[in-house]
Amino acid sequence: MLNNFEEVQKLGKDNMDMAMESLNTMTKAMQAIAAEMADYQKKSFEEGSAAVEKVVSCKSLDKAFEAQSDYFKTAYEGFVGEMTKLGEMYSDLSKEAYKPYEGMLGKMGK
């Protein structure tokens, strides 16, 4: 009976270690994602402000529309690129958070 208790205790410790490792990984990844989003928002705001200044300083309506169109194109491309990057970061997060459990799930299948 003592042997079973020790096995259960070890299993509980192992499970806690895996959960903590996974949580650690998730915390670091979420911090990186938050930093990436903050950087993108700052960059986007700065580019938007510069675009408004450029549009306002244009001498003709045609040049203003051209500047606005260029900004929208650049902003859209930047947005798509950023969402792709964030998608990859979330995908990596899920893979890394799962890694501690791979060994345990492999043992259960046997």
Rank of each mutant, 00 (worst) to 15 (best):
N3H: 12
N4E: 15
N4T: 14
N4G: 09
F5E: 13
E6F: 14
E7S: 10
E7T: 10
V8Y: 02
Q9F: 10
K10G: 02
L11D: 10
G12P: 07
G12H: 08
K13I: 14
D14I: 07
D14A: 11
M16I: 10
M18V: 00
M18F: 00
A19E: 09
A19M: 10
A19Y: 12
M20F: 06
E21K: 06
S22M: 01
S22H: 03
L23A: 14
L23Q: 11
N24E: 06
T25I: 02
T27M: 02
T27F: 03
T27H: 03
K28Y: 05
A29M: 05
A29I: 04
Q31E: 07
I33E: 01
A34G: 07
E36W: 00
M37S: 03
M37N: 01
A38P: 03
D39R: 08
D39F: 02
K43H: 04
S44E: 03
S44T: 04
F45Q: 07
F45R: 09
E46S: 12
E46H: 08
E46A: 15
E47F: 07
E47N: 13
E47Q: 14
E47K: 13
G48H: 13
S49T: 14
A50I: 06
A51E: 11
K54G: 02
S57T: 10
S57F: 05
C58Q: 15
K59Q: 14
S60N: 07
L61Y: 11
L61F: 11
D62W: 04
F65S: 14
E66S: 13
E66A: 12
A67L: 02
Q68R: 11
S69C: 11
D70A: 09
Y71E: 08
Y71R: 02
F72N: 15
F72Q: 15
K73P: 02
K73Y: 01
A75M: 10
Y76K: 14
Y76P: 01
G78R: 02
G78N: 12
G78P: 05
F79G: 03
G81Q: 01
G81F: 00
E82I: 01
E82K: 00
E82Q: 06
T84C: 03
L86N: 00
G87V: 00
E88F: 01
M89E: 06
M89L: 03
Y90K: 15
S91G: 13
S91M: 12
S91V: 08
D92K: 11
L93K: 05
L93Y: 00
S94C: 09
S94G: 08
K95Q: 14
E96Q: 12
E96S: 13
E96A: 15
A97S: 08
A97I: 05
A97R: 05
A97G: 03
Y98S: 02
K99L: 05
K99C: 01
P100F: 07
P100W: 08
P100K: 11
Y101F: 14
E102N: 09
E102C: 06
E102W: 04
G103W: 09
M104H: 11
G106K: 15
G106L: 11
G106Y: 11
G106M: 12
K107I: 00
M108F: 03
M108D: 00
M108P: 02
M108A: 04
G109C: 06
G109M: 12
G109H: 09
K110W: 14
